[in-house]
Design a protein around this nucleic acid. Structure first.
Length: 339
DNA sequence: GCAGTACAATAATTTTCCAC
DNA sequence: GTGGAAAATTATTGTACTGC
């Protein structure tokens, strides 16, 4: 095991210790207060959609945003810098294991104010506060939360290039799930994948960092089994694990768990790569059914939800507010509802 | 004017090597 | 074992150019 010479854990907040030579000029320079009405002439639908996404998911890295925008990284970074200078976004860069970390973006005051105006509410009601960046940058769950985010942005990017025309229909944050289902279940996210022939694979994401004991994961499955009637039938829980070794042990321990009578569970290991794949691909054949691990399946091949369950879920979700559809093409994440 | 592309320069960090 | 210098890695930004 190697040790770091400079193990300071503090994230780098913009305006912090990041040194820029006078020759290039500070990349953070030029930020000034902008009247909100003036900003209206500068914002595109894509920008507004990004603000909505940040309100929903709190923090996204430049790579996440690039994947969602389906853009070149250069263009994504340039636009993000513009939005930062307009006071719409805040950002920080945590320490990285190797090299430097990507920029992490959140809503800044102007961005929160514009969103609040659009939803006829206040920035505070949207979860924004002046110390949001500090709370987020130093959050002990930041890596876990970003892991769940990476799962969905990978899914979204892959669905655009996949030969299988599935579509990511929805991506709900942990906070939205808590608002909809309360203490019944606490997934890290909820998503829906729509097959081209109509059925929808709705799933609850549990992102495992390898720190929870098997008993804790078993207890989560019990909670899903208990909540199954309220969740609209037989819920599908997808568990993404850090290693094949942990996945194997989990299957050995939980293959006959009683909750499997009421819950469908599929696992994947993030170090597992299908043949000819360059990286772990959550849309690909990487999922093993718990209790019946005959072969690895694609996410779209996992059990689709019953139409009645979909109807019941939509009714519950409708209580959470209006829809902000994706403005450019693929309308995944269309279920952005704000209470 | 804005978005997109390409290239070069720069920053922040870890890793490696080497002298002491 | 420790500390410093150089190399390597990863990511961002400035600039020039093109096209709409």
């Amino acid at each position: 095991m190697t040790t770091r010479r400079n193990p300071a854990p503090a994230p780098l907040l913009r305006g912090g210790p990041r040194v820029v030579t006078p020759h290039t000029g500070s990349p953070r320079a030029g930020r000034r207060r902008q009247p909100l009405a003036e900003l209206l002439t500068r914002l595109t639908e894509r920008d507004i959609w990004l603000l909505e996404m940040l309100a929903e998911h709190t923090v996204l890295t430049s790579a996440h945003i690039n994947a969602l925008w389906d853009n070149s990284l250069r263009n994504t970074n340039r636009r993000l810098l513009t939005l930062y200078r307009l006071g719409l976004l805040d950002s920080f860069r945590p320490r990285a294991v190797s090299g430097s970390a990507p920029e992490h973006y959140l809503l800044a005051r102007n961005g929160a104010s514009i969103l609040a105006a659009r939803h006829a509410t206040t920035p505070a009601a949207l979860g924004w506060s002046p110390d949001l960046i500090t709370r987020t940058a130093y959050s002990p769950t930041l890596a876990h939360d970003l892991g769940a985010t990476t799962f969905f942005t990978s899914l979204a990017a892959a669905s655009r290039t996949s030969p299988h025309p599935e579509r990511v229909d929805a991506w709900w944050s942990e906070q939205r799930c808590a608002r909809v289902w309360g203490d019944l279940v606490r997934p890290d996210a909820h998503g829906r994948l729509r097959r081209p022939d109509g059925p929808t694979v709705a799933f609850f994401l549990e992102y495992d960092t390898g720190t929870e004991p098997h008993a804790r994961l078993a207890a989560k499955l019990d909670a899903y089994a208990d909540a199954a009637p309220a969740l609209g039938g037989r819920p599908l829980v997808v568990l993404t694990l850090p290693s094949s070794c942990r996945e194997t042990h989990l299957h050995q321990r939980l293959a006959r768990h009683p909750a499997l009578h009421a819950v469908d569970v599929a696992t994947t290991a993030r170090d597992h790569m299908p043949p000819a794949a360059a990286a772990h691909e959550p849309l690909g054949p990487v999922w093993l059914r718990l209790g019946r691990p005959t072969h690895r399946q694609r996410l779209a091949e996992l059990p689709a939800e019953h139409p009645d369950a979909a109807e019941r879920r939509e009714a519950v979700a409708a209580l959470a507010g209006p829809v902000a559809p994706h403005p450019f093409g693929h309308d995944f994440l269309g279920a952005l509802r704000r209470p």
